[in-house]
């Protein structure tokens, strides 16, 4: 893909700079800088509690107290309500499977549906079921009656229905069978080929390595490494220091 080889700085679709975030009085993120180019997949890595999920939530407008700047295609979205950010083309898949347990699979997808944006790929229910055949077989099952992994697939599917331009994926491979993890990886590559950008929080190095162009390693709420996936793989001492590989 030509887009993937563009230098990230050319025209980042998402640019985060000096991002700080708090839970109550505790500061969790300290001056995070991050960019995401169109069609790029960036893996946000780091130990438990490093602040990966917090970074994604801060970008999505789900935290009360955030400082710094977050630009989506040049427009500042910091401080905007979450729904506004979602409509601007940011999709969010949370880590704790927040599906609507009382709604059926089809209804869950309906909640995620948004008007089409010209510059993002169009997702239909059929296209989503092609990606997750399991879900296609249980269209009318209530979310609460699905297994953990099935719910995980549904969260991703639901977000895709919003035709996002950028997806924030929080540990999509967690709790999913190896076969499906492979499908997820293939899906992320598909999305990338369609021009979507993905910011992925991921602890599984094999998965992150297989799908991402760049890696950004967090430690205690600060960026410790930001570079191509290849350079990370080539320098095992970084992995040892920050990821405990």
């Amino acid at each position: 893909m030509s887009t993937a080889s563009l230098p990230a700085a050319a025209s980042p679709i998402l640019a985060v700079s000096r991002l700080c975030a708090w839970y109550g009085r505790a500061q969790i993120l300290f001056d995070i800088d991050l960019t995401l180019a169109r069609g790029e997949v960036v893996a946000l890595m780091g130990r438990n509690g490093a602040g990966k999920s917090t970074t994604l939530k801060a970008i999505m407008g789900l935290l009360d107290r955030v400082q710094g700047s977050i630009r989506l295609e040049g427009a500042d979205i910091r401080g905007k309500p979450a729904w506004h950010i979602a409509r601007a083309g940011l999709g969010y898949v949370p880590e704790d499977r927040r599906i609507f347990t009382e709604l059926t699979v089809m209804e869950n997808l309906a909640v995620g549906r948004q008007a089409r944006r010209s510059d993002a790929p169009l997702w239909t229910v059929d296209k989503v079921f092609e990606l997750f055949p399991n879900l296609g077989r249980m269209r009318n099952r209530r979310g609460g009656e699905m297994s953990g992994g099935e719910q995980q697939m549904l969260t991703v599917a639901r977000t895709l229905m919003g035709n996002p331009r950028v997806i924030l994926l929080d540990e999509p491979s967690e709790g999913v069978a190896p076969l499906i993890v492979e499908q997820m990886a293939a899906m992320i590559l598909d999305l990338k080929h369609e021009g979507l950008s993905v910011l992925l929080s991921e602890q599984n190095p094999a998965f992150a390595g297989a799908v991402s162009d760049r890696a950004c390693i967090l430690e205690k709420g600060q960026v410790q490494f930001d570079g191509s996936m290849r350079s990370l793989i080539d320098s095992p001492e970084i992995g040892r220091a920050f990821l405990g590989l």
Binding site: A82, W83, Y92, R98, F100, T101, V111
Partner: peptide, 12 residues
């Protein structure tokens, strides 16, 4: 059930 999530999906 979860209005924060609804909002994160683009619903005002």
């Amino acid at each position: 059930q979860d209005r924060e999530m609804v909002s994160a999906l683009g619903v005002a």
